[in-house]
Design a protein around this nucleic acid. Sequence first.
DNA 1: GGCGGTTGCTAACACGCGTTAGCTAAGATA
DNA 2: TATCTTAGCTAACGCGTGTTAGCAACCGCC
Lengths: 354, 354
Amino acid sequence: MTKAPTATDVARRAEVSRSAVSLVLGGRAKDARLSEETQERIRKAAAELNYRPNAAARSLVRGRTEVIGLVIRDIDLIGIDPFLLPLLDGILDATRDQGYRVLVESVRAGGGNPFGDLMDSGRIDGMIVENPNYGDKSLRRLIKAGRPVVVMGSQGIKEEVSVRIDDFQVGYVATQHLASLGRRRIAHIAYAERGIYAVDKRLDGYRSAMQKGGVPVHDDLVIHASFSMESGYRAMKKLLDGKELPDAVFAGSDAVAMGVIAAIQDAGHTVPGDIAVASVDNIDAARFFRPALTTVTSEPYACGRVAAQMLIELMNGRQPVEQNVLVDTRLIVRGSTNPIYAEVLSSLGERRPL
Amino acid sequence: MTKAPTATDVARRAEVSRSAVSLVLGGRAKDARLSEETQERIRKAAAELNYRPNAAARSLVRGRTEVIGLVIRDIDLIGIDPFLLPLLDGILDATRDQGYRVLVESVRAGGGNPFGDLMDSGRIDGMIVENPNYGDKSLRRLIKAGRPVVVMGSQGIKEEVSVRIDDFQVGYVATQHLASLGRRRIAHIAYAERGIYAVDKRLDGYRSAMQKGGVPVHDDLVIHASFSMESGYRAMKKLLDGKELPDAVFAGSDAVAMGVIAAIQDAGHTVPGDIAVASVDNIDAARFFRPALTTVTSEPYACGRVAAQMLIELMNGRQPVEQNVLVDTRLIVRGSTNPIYAEVLSSLGERRPL
DNA sequence: GGCGGTTGCTAACACGCGTTAGCTAAGATA
DNA sequence: TATCTTAGCTAACGCGTGTTAGCAACCGCC
């Protein structure tokens, strides 16, 4: 475990000053009129010593770390939320070639000034915040102060830079689809508690579609689950214990939907015969689950890519072209709402039209 | 966007020297015999200015960053591999309270010295490497040099510090379970290509169980898929096109198994009637999929926790108590191998015994 | 042979912090 | 009064880098 070589070591070996090393490796050799021969000598010495500039020292003098933070709302959800992995994937893809690294941080809700702490620690240059609680004070302050922050979802602040899908539209389309099948008692099982932008907006879309379609809205048909399939299972069970059965469920996520469907089947009902189920995300499993899930895509990978690109703009002091990006979404109809679907496909020996 | 306050700003406001600030906030006030009153003044000034020590400067002088790296083997898999999220969760849980942050890095296979580059960039103090390719030279060099590295899986180097499940045992147990059901043509669909420790060892376990059980091993019954359900679907389809059908499949992961089962059903066969399927991971969906998956747990969360704890030991210059930890695993029998299971459970109105 | 211009390089500062040796003033001791 | 001790604090160095002003040598030119 020998100490890492510094620019001084390289300088000594190449028999030049440390300044020359810094200039050459920083690509500013021309400005300093260093001879080709000297440059070559320095590069050779650096390679031989396996020299890499120390990131901390560089950050200190440059005032930037080349690291961005991905801030997760609540630690408990990291292991469960299937949205996160493709999101991270998109972020990594967009940042890698720009030379940025990604620090994953989880922030407990409530208490202190977690966002400010992280931002001002000098560890990151900017951050992407996934699904923050609506109106978080700590985050709000940061955004108002003009720091480089991209919000996934929305904080409802006019200054915010955000990326999201149109969650209202998502709720509207899914519910409308269920209503178009002639369903009248359409329940909604949200994927998380109130206060998260996406949760609230999908609920709004659901309500709006019901009203437009002339379908009565019953508040006891709205329940909040909590990310996991397990929580969806339990929520649906509660619903099934009610006086009157729903004939359709709009689930806030595919994971919740899978629990919901299991609960329905365990209770002896059929999907989509007795109860049709539509959801959101289009995770991998949606195509392979039986019945395959009718779902509205939530585009985590695309959201991650776009968010990272916008953040890089912000960190470079530029305003992104669009301040609030809406990523396109689409409805994919499969067996969980369409009984014909499965039969048609299996008779064709084909399972996945999309 | 005003500049972040430095220790000098705090010193000015508290009317003391910058040294005093550093001493007080670093908890070494007693050593320097600073009076209670002065300490209070400094703390007050720091709070008022919202002062946070700059991480880069601190790293530079301390020679440590308080950041660990989680290195993913290949960028393409991040969005897919369900093992990663609970792994990250475990790592975050174990590091958070120790004051460490986590940097997620993806490394392309082949070319350059990616592990060395990352380690010597001065950005991280140590790293956890997920599923590296067996015998990677860049990684090998780092381990041999005694740098703080924890390998998830194994590189087969005696100096390595590693955490893993007993992948041989996993393959053995799953296959033995299938054999114990009287199956004789047991196929194996690995979850990734050859050269990854877990993949190879599970295959060894599979072969060993076959031999011990007196079941003939046919090499054309072994196929390598690639993480996704889709790849499992395709692999199984290929198998189904062979001359003689298997009557059981040991799938290398739950994700692959879900694709496998879909393919089997699409071809008009039943699970577990015609073909029983056992797999590895016990992801959330395993309980809710139909048939529910018989699977051997792979304990990603526990592995992450343990790996992080061991890495912290290493970074503190201590040797961990155990150099190569094996995390316990268990077989969970569900409907994909046990036809009785589903019926019994549904008649009890209960779905999940485990 | 004095002067401006160019080439090739380096000295020196700054970034923000942790740390240690040592300074000053007051009190204790002799 | 002179010396020692102690309390309370600060000056100053070093971490490894990026950057700028400027130095020395040489050349060409009037």
